[in-house]
């Protein structure tokens, strides 16, 4: 049944998400063509039209990325709320499926779209960077050398990249589960369940942040990003690795807790009035 739930969730969200991702891709291609035809280093006051075009494009692109990530997150929150706790819940909760299957199907589709969006944005930025640099992009070897200049041991580079990707994935998971758990907690309110859900969202987020900061302070850090900006010439890679490892563990523990909250409310406290 999980496969069938996944299939229908994918089908239902496809059009909206393909439009969002397609728009960014199209914007990136247009940008690449636009930047290929001009030289940014030659932008000056004597060419105000080119400057205006450049500024407008950058603004639209940044807003586009913002809409892609925030808009898709809100879209999946709303889908979860409508499918589970409004009239549509009368259909979803009478299907011969478990609550785990319901949550997991929604979460996995949302996560796949988040990964697709990340790939689309990365590819788009690469495309623009490539057209600005006029094919003169650094090779991987050159990038690796540059990183080593900051004092990071070569053996640690791949580990740091893996841990950072794990964190990015965990954070995306956390974002969705935070929404699902908040919407579920909001159902305890007698009236104004949406406002209660927003309140739960803010409340849970504050608790998670406070707990995380407390633990990070205990291990002698406030944030792993601190290590990137401690010194312009040298990065504390050992400290960064420790901090990001702790952050990885914490984010996945929080995800597990939020998942269990969502599941427990749906299984034991469902009240579609």
């Amino acid at each position: 049944m999980l496969g069938k739930l996944f299939k229908h969730e994918w089908k239902d969200s496809f059009l909206f998400m393909i439009i969002l991702n397609g728009s960014i891709l199209l914007l990136s291609i247009l940008g690449a063509v636009f930047f290929r035809s001009m030289d940014i280093s030659e932008l000056d006051y004597e060419r105000p039209f080119q400057g205006l075009m450049y500024g407008t494009y950058v603004l639209v692109y940044v807003v586009g990325i913002f809409v892609l990530f925030i808009g898709s997150t809100i879209y999946f929150y709303v889908r979860f709320f409508r499918n589970m706790y409004t009239d549509q819940g009368y259909l979803m909760h009478t299907l011969p499926v478990t609550e785990h299957e319901l949550i997991f199907s929604k979460l996995s589709v949302a996560m796949i779209w988040k990964i697709i969006s990340a790939i689309v944005v990365t590819f788009g930025l690469e495309l623009i960077a490539y057209s600005i640099a006029k094919d003169d992009l650094p090779t991987l070897r050159e990038i690796s050398k540059e990183i080593q200049r900051f004092g990071i041991e070569p053996g640690r580079i791949s580990l740091i990249i893996i841990m950072s990707l794990l964190f990015a994935l965990g954070y995306a998971l956390y974002t969705y589960l935070l929404g699902y758990a908040s919407v579920s907690v909001g159902q305890f309110a007698v009236k104004n369940k949406v406002i209660a859900s927003v309140g739960a969202f803010i409340g849970i987020r504050l608790i998670v942040r406070f707990t995380r900061n407390l633990i990070m302070v205990c291990i002698g850090s406030t944030s792993f990003t601190r290590y990137l900006f401690m010194s312009a010439s040298r990065i504390d890679d050992k400290g960064f690795l420790l901090a990001i490892t702790v952050s990885d563990i914490l984010i996945y523990i929080v995800c597990a807790i939020l998942y269990l909250i969502t599941h427990a409310i749906m299984k034991n406290r469902l009240n579609l009035e």
Binding site: T94, P96, V97, R269, N271
Partner: peptide
Amino acid sequence: INGLLRPTRGEVLIEGQAPNPSTKA
């Protein structure tokens, strides 16, 4: 009976089982 509301007390049994995916089927 359909599992859309949870009883405050007591129980609902469908063919001897509390509402679950097999009773919903």
